[in-house]
């Protein structure tokens, strides 16, 4: 299952991409097409990775909002493909964390600044693990890691058993309240395969969120990984996340 480099796949891919491009030539704005330099998407030439520069995050929540709008995520505060957490560490006390409405409406300033050591924001998102436990447990093959490294859901095949939600160590999945299937971040697969950035990355005003092709040495994500010391969340679980954090704190889980 790991090695995807076989001929039949390439052939199929060529075909499917042609059909997608034909469709897009009809329905997709030409201006946008020319601008993004779309010249046929090749899955095998991509491996998508994502960086989060915690020191830059201002907690404005524009990423959360853009994600919900782009992907038609249910509005209620129980369903998030990405969200922002605020950490507040006080002297001698346990860390306080909050994420009102996933941070979508921004954060009012901390009322209590007593004994505050530091406070900061941490954006969260599906880690698109190299060894995704959610994919491992899915009984029917309704969630999978795509050849370009994105963990996706097949909503037409998911039986709604929620085992994947239990298996995700990062709380990145939810059950869609209307479709009754698991739902999660797709890196905006509809966008990235057309040469566009994920909605959250595009919406971020401070370049906190970095995205790109790990197979391309000059991609923003590779430059970020080279320039910074990066960490991943819960490395002890062996999931090998592809969301790389810079400036993370010991209290962040």
């Amino acid at each position: 299952m790991a090695d995807m480099n076989n001929l039949s796949r390439r052939e199929f891919l060529g075909l499917s991409l042609k059909s997608i491009m034909a469709l897009m030539a009809l329905g997709f704005p030409k201006k946008l097409l020319a601008m993004t330099g779309l010249d046929g998407y090749k899955m095998e030439e991509h491996l998508w990775g994502y960086g989060i520069d915690v020191d830059k995050c201002i907690g404005c929540g524009r990423c959360v909002d853009a994600c919900k709008v782009e992907n038609n995520v249910p509005d209620e505060p129980f369903f998030f493909r990405t969200w922002v957490e605020r950490y507040a560490e006080r002297k001698g006390e346990k860390v306080e964390v909050d994420s009102p409405n996933g941070g979508r409406d921004g954060f009012p300033d901390l009322k209590n600044k007593k004994e505050l050591v530091k406070s900061f924001f941490v954006p969260k998102i599906c880690n698109h693990c190299e060894h995704p436990p959610c994919v491992q447990v899915c009984p029917v093959g309704a969630t999978y890691k795509s050849p370009d490294g994105v963990v996706l859901v097949d909503p037409g095949y998911c039986i709604g058993c929620r085992y994947c939600i239990q298996a995700c160590p990062y709380g990145a999945r939810y059950l869609h309240p209307k479709k009754h299937v698991a739902d999660k971040c797709t890196f905006c697969y509809q966008r990235i395969t057309k040469g566009l950035e994920p909605a959250c990355v595009q919406a971020c005003p401070t370049k906190t969120r970095i995205f790109g092709n790990l197979k391309d040495g000059n991609s923003p994500i590779n430059k970020f990984i080279k320039a910074k010391k990066v960490l991943v969340l819960k490395p002890d679980l062996g999931t090998r996340p592809k969301i790389f954090y810079s400036g993370i704190d010991k209290e962040v889980r």
Partner: peptide, 20 residues
């Protein structure tokens, strides 16, 4: 792999809301 190949295309062809 152990999934519907067509699902990849379906995920690719979801409607967009934000322009580039």
């Amino acid at each position: 792999g152990h999934y519907r190949g067509g699902s990849l295309e379906e995920n690719m062809s979801r409607p967009l809301n934000y322009a580039g």
